[in-house]
Design a protein around this nucleic acid. Structure first.
Lengths: 229, 229
DNA sequence: TGTGGGTCTTGTGTCGACAATTGGCGTGCC
DNA sequence: GGCACGCCAATTGTCGACACAAGACCCACA
């Protein structure tokens, strides 16, 4: 009855729908995921829905409670900080490895990227600096340049999804755009100098700044965490 | 018909059976996993088997090829080295965090552990030092002491399973038992001194040694093993 | 009126079957 | 003799249904 899906599987689609819905907040943290209800909502059977949920569980976006069903994973300030800490460790290592393997051409590419960023910042005076394809690209390219497939997977597949539910907009938020750009330059300089120790240090410092910004940001908004029933 | 499983689900059991079989080598890397065949072999239906495979995929033990089925993930020397590199980054960070949070009592526990190790090494003169409950415990306790749930999960659930397929026996192999013990002592000393930087450095150095041992171990057998016949 | 037991509903875990796609194989044509 | 086309079997993706378990609800009884 449904048009025969040629490319992605129904389970694939259900996974993306569910992930999107969870990120959008349609299913808030703690909400129960009813397989039958979801299957009816999606117009498919329970099988693919189950598979999608299984995958969400693997990505730690939902938590299974024995025979009681799954709930959207609880979020917390601490959890976000913990994720950013893990990111710090992994991306630091990625930067170290990249420093040893990246080609001169790719270094030039990174340079061009930063120049573009600088112009953007100048234009909008740090207003709403959309770093979606910007900062992400800088970090992502370094991650790829590490040449470590396991590291790449953990960062750009696992961690990425986990961070996404926090709608985490990387470090370049509000006023930190300029500092971040500076830190990016320092990272790139260390990579150019082929100094892995320094490169890892700079990347860790950069990400630590971002993490600390999040830590402080929340301390001031700790209590007002009420929401509708 | 089958005795109603009270505790673990059939999918849980199938997952463990499959993981064990993969590790044992019953299904060598590259082997196809036939859902129907497996379900008949296990005496269950395809549903739970599918779920188990899904979970194996999440743990990166098998690779799915579109509508063509799943194969046991390929292994390689490089892959093992990459995993150990990731471990280096994560456990280094765990050690840093643990240094800031671990209690004095737990530090004493670690000390006792190392004393036990020392005795074991003395007894068997570094022979077949079974560090299954030994070294693992030392590292595991530090990981737990990090207090970072995400880090703990990634190390003791994800990475652990990935390393297991290599039957990786940690660093304490052959003659490195004594050096490893020494390195453990250095780590513990740094933790006692509440010096996170030093603790992370020592842990990274320790794991880097182990990794390098693996790297070299293979380099000598890289060419088609032409040791004098 | 509070509590205990029993029932009843909801939902997961599991099963068997159908359909569509993939890859292999045989056959026919150039 | 080689290549291409088409058929066939095998296996995955998907579906609907059944059974047991967990929690909610209700009623009777102290």
């Amino acid at each position: 009855m449904p048009p025969p899906q040629l490319g992605p599987t129904l389970a694939d689609q259900a996974f993306e729908w569910l992930e999107e819905a969870i990120i959008k907040g349609d299913y808030p943290p703690g909400a129960r995921l009813d397989e039958l209800a979801l299957s009816k909502a999606f117009g498919i059977s329970r099988g693919p829905v189950r598979e999608a949920i299984l995958r969400l569980e693997g990505k730690r976006l939902v938590e299974r409670i024995a025979r009681s069903g799954v709930r959207v994973a609880q979020r917390s300030h601490d959890d976000l900080v913990q994720l950013l800490t893990v990111r710090e460790a992994l991306e630091g290592m990625a930067c170290r490895l990249a420093t040893e393997r990246i080609t001169a051409a790719d270094l030039d590419e990174l340079d061009k990227l930063l120049t573009t960023h600088e112009k953007d910042i100048g234009l909008q005076a740090g207003a709403h600096y959309f770093q979606k394809p910007g900062d992400y690209d800088f970090h992502f390219r370094i991650i790829l340049a590490s040449g470590n497939r396991r590291l790449i997977e953990m960062l750009s597949e696992d961690l990425y999804h986990m961070l996404r539910v926090y709608r985490y907009r990387s470090s370049e938020r509000a006023g930190r755009a300029k500092e971040a750009l500076n830190e990016h330059r320092k990272i790139l300089a260390a990579m150019r100098a082929r100094d892995p120790d320094q490169a890892e240090r700079e990347m860790r410092a950069h990400l630590a700044h971002a993490r600390r910004a999040v830590e402080e940001e929340h301390v001031s908004s700790q209590p007002p965490r009420l929401k509708r029933a």
